[in-house]
Design a protein around this nucleic acid. Structure first.
Lengths: 195, 195
DNA sequence: ACCGCGATGTATCGCCGCGATACATCGAGC
DNA sequence: GCTCGATGTATCGCGGCGATACATCGCGGT
């Protein structure tokens, strides 16, 4: 969700749309771009919801250009108290919504602001989500393999390897995360064998 | 685009929505799912455009259940002549639209039905698209690296590696493709499949 | 003999995000 | 003096998604 990303970014410092977009690119990299076609409407929505406020102050810049049709100046946004609250709430979210394809990366990008326990739960959730998908695809593939041409097959196998790779990455991250944290009475099973 | 996938699948045999969805899963695997929320509206659109036709014939099944509200039977779709034409047209598409993230996989899945020269051009286009993105992200990363926390950094680097991996995959495929084809000379005029 | 459940099957709704496009300002370099 | 690319705000249509609703069918369990 773009909202979390905007909240997370604005938590560091007030920004205007264009900067927000640059920061989004710098923060999410290959993972996601977020076009203006998403950004501006989202900003509007968030402002209407009261999570962010437009920080006027560059109004003088406008002064020298009088009655120009829709003269627009920079619009700087900053977090409101409700916005901070919402951010905290979203950051604490560790359920399914946080391990979806599109969402996970955003949550991960703001892990520095996330509670360590929540981090592990998101990581594990994401991993099982991926493992489920992998098994589903593997099952289907086993059933239909014979009927598929070589290109389709290669696509499937490449995809499966990609998923595998991400699972391995997540496993590493989980281990690092666990070793960083003082071995708190682990509520989840220490070494869940194969899933 | 879902349309290409549907056309490609129906080219093999007539199918109804549910089967189409199963085939979609079996064909695209991890790459994409395509929910019913996309499928049915698309089917409607394609029918209205005249690319596919509803193959009635299971109407008798309905007979024994008289005035049931919205009694629905299977709706089998098959390709029309225009649909076949459209499929040929889409399969010949080798321009930017074919190397987009969401589109590429669908094109690839139907490579068996695609002209060998077009295959190579799609593969190469996809690869440069990915390389461009990678360089862009690398540049941004070099500029901002110092300011990023370790999680953001890890996300970026994982993403970069994924892109790298796909580039390598594509390179292999291109080589295989070239060695399969009798080393034809530089394609007669790029035809620049703009659009 | 009955029931429930999961697979089969069609369909819609609201939301989100994308790419394209338009418009406007500004500094740098030719 | 001019164009060009970066900075900047904004909208539009559309394609896809997840959730949801509804209906039928065959199977296994009790």
């Amino acid at each position: 969700m773009l909202e979390l990303a905007v909240l997370g970014l604005l938590h560091e410092s007030p920004l205007h749309g264009y900067e927000l977009r640059q920061r989004l690119k710098a923060t999410l990299g290959t993972f996601r771009a977020f076009s203006y076609g998403s950004l501006y409407p989202t900003l509007r929505r968030m402002r209407d919801a009261g999570w962010i406020a437009e920080d006027e102050g560059n109004a003088e810049v406008v002064a020298d250009a009088p009655a120009l049709t829709g003269r627009r100046g920079k619009v700087v946004y900053k977090l409101t108290a409700e916005g901070k609250e919402k951010l905290t709430e979203l950051l604490a979210e560790a359920g399914p919504s946080a391990w979806e394809d599109e969402t996970f990366g955003v949550h991960f990008a703001f892990f520095a602001q996330t509670d360590p326990e929540v981090r592990v739960r998101i990581l594990e959730g994401r991993r099982s989500r991926l493992e489920e998908r992998r098994e589903g695809v593997r099952a289907t593939l086993a059933r239909t393999r014979a009927r598929l041409d070589s290109y389709t097959l290669q696509l499937q196998e490449h995809g499966l390897e990609s998923v595998d790779r991400e699972v391995r990455w997540l496993t590493e991250l989980i281990e690092t995360e666990r070793s960083k944290a003082p071995a708190r009475r682990t509520p989840s099973r220490p070494k869940t064998a194969r899933s």
